[in-house]
Amino acid sequence: MAFYVSRLSLGLELRRLGCKTMRCSGVDCRSSSSTSTTLAPRSLADDGKTDKLGRREKKNLMMSESVDKPDLNLRFKYPEMFPEPFMIWRNPVKEKLERKDMLARRNCISIPEFYVGSVLRVNLSNIHQPDKVSSFVGICIERKETGLRASITLRNVIDNLGVEIKLELYDPRLLKIEVLRLERRLDPHLRYLRDAPPEYSTFPLDMKPDINRSDEVPLNRIKVKLNPRPWTENWHKIEYKGIDESIDDLITNKWKARRELLRKPWEKYDLMKTYRATLPEEEMEEILTEIKDDVEEHDRKHSRRQS
């Protein structure tokens, strides 16, 4: 039984609550308040205070001066709180309700700060185990999805067999998430570990947590040397910073030539493409303002419990 609210059940939920489901068309409806239902940003110059050239004094309409702006660095700590900027599926009401549910779950268990490349131990409830708990240790190779369906993939090599478990962070069967080694890596995912020697993915199941003294999350600049082909994915096509240069020795000249053709040097100049793939700062600030007090409280509560 899924705890997360699917799109279909959301509709039922909302109808039960008596509010209409809001649908966004294929137009950006990022508006000033997350519950606003306008399809396009309302012109803010309608109150007649513009001069004839359209100039106005900038007013901080979203936040008053007394309220501190949230620290935008928090966005890396809670990435699943931010919706995917795929406009057609966005729904401000759905997102707000989801965040509410996520905060409620975070109140129950501690979902700590971790990144792709961190080593986690996860305790799941399993009725078939004698102590009803099954535990898994692995390196987080992926963080997918947003909202209540945010998931992670943990990888470990057990008895010479690579094992990957995909878990949803807000799954109610998750009993505990413990970060054994908190570190970052150079790439957004580490799926290439599947085609790397097992040393890179092996972690003892009884691993003790590393004590991290520094405030900053360390960046592991390790360059992985891949196994010879065949690979599960074409690792040579994307410039992975975490893969060693020796990958060139593993691919043919024909593949190298193809790779050259695939390069898109103009893509970094495509301003609208990057805009459509990002959440604007204002929206991130709104979301963080909404959640930051609650997550701070939860962190305090869970750290108190641990100590």
């Binding site: 950006d28 966005r75 890396f76 990057t274 604007p280 700062e281 204002e282």
Partner: peptide, 17 residues
């Protein structure tokens, strides 16, 4: 996987299709 959180952009005040 999710929004490119590392990049910060200002919101555009035009309808983006």
């Amino acid at each position: 996987h999710y929004a490119e959180l590392s990049k910060l952009v200002s919101r555009l005040k035009i309808p983006v299709h």
